[in-house]
């Protein structure tokens, strides 16, 4: 049987890992999407709804 401290440590550790994983996943996803968008814009692809000169 683990000590009570071990149960507390595992709970906080798992929470930190899960939330950090979620944050890292979202940050990496955002970087990948912005890179894709920049590549398309570099190729001259524009959205139809985008007025001339708008760059986001």
């Amino acid at each position: 049987m683990m000590s009570h401290e071990a149960f507390v440590f595992l709970s906080y550790g798992a929470t930190a890992l899960t939330l950090a994983g979620l944050l890292i996943g979202i940050v990496l996803d955002g970087r990948a999407r912005r890179r894709e968008l920049a590549e398309l814009e570099a190729q001259g692809v524009r959205r139809r709804s985008e007025p001339a000169g708008e760059a986001n």
Partner: peptide, 27 residues
């Protein structure tokens, strides 16, 4: 606050994902 921070970030990513999809389709 963590939830709303992550949710806003994820929403921004999803908008960009759909924008990329639309632009690829148009291209």
């Amino acid at each position: 606050l963590i939830f709303f921070t992550l949710h806003l970030m994820a929403m921004r990513n999803e908008i960009l994902r759909r924008r990329v999809q639309t632009m690829r389709r148009q291209a």
